[in-house]
Amino acid sequence: MLEKLLLNHYEAAAVILSGIGLTNLLLQRNLIKKIIGLNIMDTAVYLFLAAKGYVEGRAAPILIENGSGGWLTSSALYVNPVPAGLVLTGIVVSVSVTAFALALTLKLYESYGTLNIDEALLKMTEEQEQLEAVIEEADEEVLS
């Protein structure tokens, strides 16, 4: 198995990287660090895809002129173009969700003054209790 892993070392590195990202995501209590963990996971996928597109001894998939006004179109010359397209999509998706997640984090920070989700949760429960008390008081006033 180790031999095979060494053969597929880029993919193995990508997998370990995604494990690091996932651990970060699960264990960090700071929201920004969690989002960084997500980004590491995404990056691992790009590495994996880039490794999958590579074919030994072939060039990037941009047609080369053959010297007499034509183009070299033999498929034995170029690497697989599909993973490049998939990585592009992955990057755009990752940028979008990162921006959205950071915007939500900023909103949360504005409300609670903390990036730690446990503290935010504590503050939220406190606030909710206060809120309930306020509402009850108001109800009693209305009823009386």
């Binding site: 198995m1 095979k4 597929n8 997998v15 494990g19 590579y54 072939r58």
Partner: peptide, 19 residues
Amino acid sequence: VIVSLLLATVAELPPFGHE
């Protein structure tokens, strides 16, 4: 568990850079 599963998967995948 996930990383070891994925490593086992990667070891079985088609070899890197093979045409």
